[in-house]
């Protein structure tokens, strides 16, 4: 019993230490971003890797989620004779919740894991040490452009997801199930407020971007320097970032509701 408690305490302390190291690492990224030169070439390459290459996935996922939402919500609303509110229901659920959350989870799986694996492989191959020995800060050269790219692309991808989702629901509701197009768009326009809904969506995607950028780069940077270590770090990024995004989503929603 005592040993169990001691182990639990030690594990908790280790986690707190790890969190402290990660926050300090985040501060070093922020400081690196404010120190010239800003590495535009590396940043644009990372935007391409994390953002442009995720566009197809985000479009396909957004459209599919829109199809499903359109179908499910129409079938539910029609029972109460409220099918005219389809635009409202789809718009609010996508803008407030599904857009930023699902984009965060999808980018975690596609780009976050890739960033962890790439930085982890560089650590394993002593490339980060090689940079240090050339008096080049690996956080400035390797980590910062990738972290900034994730931070930059997540809100854009989230907006793309929401747009495609609404379009998908429109196709199902209006073109397939015969709802009036004007009614769909009018209910959407009437329900969505910039201050509460669009801003909330933007804030969430920015926060998810910060969390993912920090977790993905830290896991790669601090992984054990062997192939199994890189593999564990990559898995850990997906699990930790997904949970962090879901938890942050709840906290932000609760704060917004106050």
């Amino acid at each position: 019993m005592t040993r169990g408690l001691a182990n639990l305490g030690a594990a908790t302390l280790r986690q707190i230490e790890e969190l402290g190291r990660m926050i300090r690492f985040g501060a070093r990224i922020v400081m690196a971003a404010s120190r010239p030169p800003f590495r535009w070439r590396a940043f644009m390459a990372a935007v391409y890797d994390s953002g442009v290459l995720s566009v197809a996935l985000i479009c396909a996922a957004g459209l599919t989620v829109g199809f499903v939402l359109g179908l499910q919500l129409y079938n539910t609303l029609v029972r109460f004779g409220a099918e005219d509110s389809l635009g409202t229901a789809v718009g609010l659920s996508l803008i407030r919740e599904l857009g930023p959350v699902l984009t965060g989870l999808l980018v975690t799986g596609r780009a976050g894991s890739a960033i962890t694996a790439e930085i982890g492989a560089m650590r394993t191959g002593q490339q980060l040490d090689g940079l240090r020995m050339m008096a080049i800060d690996p956080i400035h050269f390797v980590v910062m452009p990738r972290a900034m790219a994730i931070f930059f692309v997540l809100p854009l991808l989230s907006a793309l997801f929401v747009s495609l989702g609404i379009f998908g629901a429109y196709l199902i509701g209006v073109e397939l199930l015969g709802l009036d197009g004007g009614t769909f768009l009018a209910s959407l326009e009437a329900a969505v407020e910039f201050d509460t809904d669009v801003l909330q969506s933007l804030v969430k995607s920015v926060v998810f971007g910060v969390l993912l950028a920090l977790i993905a780069t830290w896991r790669g940077y601090s992984c054990e320097p062997h192939s199994a270590g890189v593999s564990r770090a990559t898995t850990s990024t997906v699990v930790t970032a997904s949970i962090a995004i879901l938890l942050a989503d709840y906290l932000l929603t609760a704060l917004w509701s106050l």
């Binding site: 492989a121 560089m122 191959g125 002593q126 490339q127 040490d129 090689g130 940079l131 020995m133």
Partner: peptide, 12 residues
């Protein structure tokens, strides 16, 4: 300093 690492450590 200059350092040659055992595995080269070139940026791949």
């Amino acid at each position: 300093l200059g350092m040659l690492f055992q595995n080269g450590a070139l940026l791949d």
